[in-house]
Amino acid sequence: MTDILGYARVSTQQQDLDSQRHRLTKAGAIRIFEDVISGKIFDRPGLEELIAYARPNDLLCVVRLDRLGRSLKELLETVEYLKECKIGLMSLEEKIDTSSAAGELVFHAYRQHSCEKVL
């Protein structure tokens, strides 16, 4: 059975995780892992704990893709690692769910669009 595991991140202690927690719970997350750490720092204990906890075919759910990576390169590396671990990715804002072929296609279209914006 596939479980949805939420991941929430804010950059500072002054920011609030509540809105992310609420949306992730509403999306069906059975457990939410959190980090309060700048996007500039890629050592994220909460994300590492989620990946260690997840089983193949589980879904890592975020409110927005920027919660996973500050740059497109960082995001793509994370998504590739999730794929190696057989963990899907769901982003609520971008309406992406890589656990299906259609969702994988949407993610690649998003990636292509983001790459074109950089160029």
Rank of each mutant, 00 (worst) to 15 (best):
V10I: 06
V10Q: 01
S11R: 02
S11E: 05
S11D: 03
S11T: 04
Q15C: 03
Q15W: 00
Q15P: 06
Q15H: 03
Q15R: 04
D16T: 01
D16M: 02
D16E: 01
D16R: 02
L17M: 01
L17F: 00
L17Y: 01
D18I: 00
S19I: 02
Q20T: 02
R21T: 00
R21D: 00
R21Q: 03
R23M: 04
L24I: 06
L24W: 03
K26S: 11
K26H: 13
G28Q: 07
G28P: 08
G28E: 07
G28L: 05
A29L: 01
A29S: 07
I30N: 08
R31V: 13
I32W: 04
I32L: 05
F33I: 02
E34K: 07
E34H: 06
E34R: 03
D35T: 12
D35F: 15
V36I: 15
V36Q: 11
I37Y: 15
I37Q: 14
I37C: 15
G39S: 13
G39A: 13
K40M: 15
K40T: 13
I41K: 13
I41H: 12
F42N: 09
D43P: 09
D43G: 12
R44D: 06
R44Y: 04
R44G: 06
P45Y: 05
G46M: 04
L47P: 05
E48D: 04
E48Q: 09
E48P: 00
E48F: 08
E48N: 05
E49I: 08
E49H: 08
L50Y: 04
I51A: 12
I51L: 12
A52S: 03
A52N: 07
Y53C: 10
A54R: 02
A54S: 02
A54K: 01
R55E: 09
R55H: 07
R55G: 06
P56L: 00
P56C: 03
N57C: 07
L59V: 10
L59C: 10
L59Q: 09
L60H: 08
L60Q: 10
C61Q: 13
C61F: 12
C61W: 10
C61T: 12
C61L: 12
V62I: 06
V62N: 10
V63S: 12
R64A: 15
R64G: 15
R64Q: 15
L65S: 14
L65N: 11
D66H: 15
R67D: 10
L68P: 09
L68M: 13
L68G: 09
G69D: 13
R70P: 06
S71I: 14
S71E: 11
S71H: 13
S71K: 13
L72R: 15
L72S: 12
L72F: 15
K73H: 07
E74A: 07
L75C: 07
L75I: 09
E77I: 04
T78H: 02
T78K: 04
E80Q: 05
E80S: 07
Y81A: 10
